[in-house]
């Protein structure tokens, strides 16, 4: 079973029902480690050694966050800047993450249709996440399409439970290698689509 490291960043977690359900769902599974960055490093002073050690101990890295201005909140970027260091994650001798998986688990205010060519944002999430994808590639990680909870402002209570269950399903698929082996994951723009086909 693969071990999953969730790097989680939300500056107003206390107000987020979506991420509360997601975190709650994830923490009930085994072999999952959650790093609540805003809680652990309120002054952005991320403990690099500790984070790198965690990366070594896990097989899958999930960046979980709300989407702000088509990207992640600053502490996730800080984490990327500090932890994925030269000579360790990339560059000469930087091969510590080779072969691991990475993906973003995000929430967006806009609906799924808004993130299409025809929609108001004109691009898919996967397109917006090109920097993450390329970061993963440079670190020799396999980048998967994002798992997204969209239209988060209009979600109703009952839906929140489903979200948690879906997330658990995705996490289990990752742990059991179901996604990596399936050949069609490269054809989807969101992991959610994979979920429906099962």
């Amino acid at each position: 079973m693969k071990k999953i490291l969730i790097i989680f960043g939300h500056p107003r977690f206390e107000n987020s029902k979506v991420h509360s359900s997601l975190i709650e769902a994830a923490s009930s599974l085994e072999n999952i480690t959650i790093q609540d960055l805003y809680e652990q490093y309120p002054n952005f002073n991320i403990n690099v050694a500790h984070q790198q050690q965690l990366l070594l101990e896990h097989d899958v890295v999930i960046l979980q966050h709300p989407v702000y201005w088509y990207s992640c909140p600053p502490i996730i970027k800080q984490w990327i800047d500090l932890v994925l260091s030269y000579g360790w994650a990339y560059g000469v001798g930087g091969n510590k993450l080779e072969g691991k998986l990475m993906c973003n688990v995000v929430s967006t205010g806009g609906s799924t249709t808004a993130y299409t060519k025809e929609g108001s944002h004109q691009h898919t999430l996967l397109e917006f996440f090109l920097p993450f994808k390329q970061t993963a590639k440079l670190c020799k990680l396999t980048y998967l399409p994002p798992f997204a909870i969209q239209g988060s402002h209009r979600l109703i209570e009952t839906k929140l439970q489903d979200i948690g269950l879906q997330y658990q399903q995705i996490l289990k698929m990752l742990q059991n290698d179901d996604i990596n082996t399936s050949s069609d994951f490269t054809n989807v723009t969101l992991l959610n689509e994979l979920l429906k086909s099962i």
Partner: peptide, 11 residues
């Protein structure tokens, strides 16, 4: 520890 992070010397 952070001096490594934004340090381009090794690069």
């Amino acid at each position: 520890q952070h001096d490594n992070a934004w340090d381009s010397e090794p690069l």
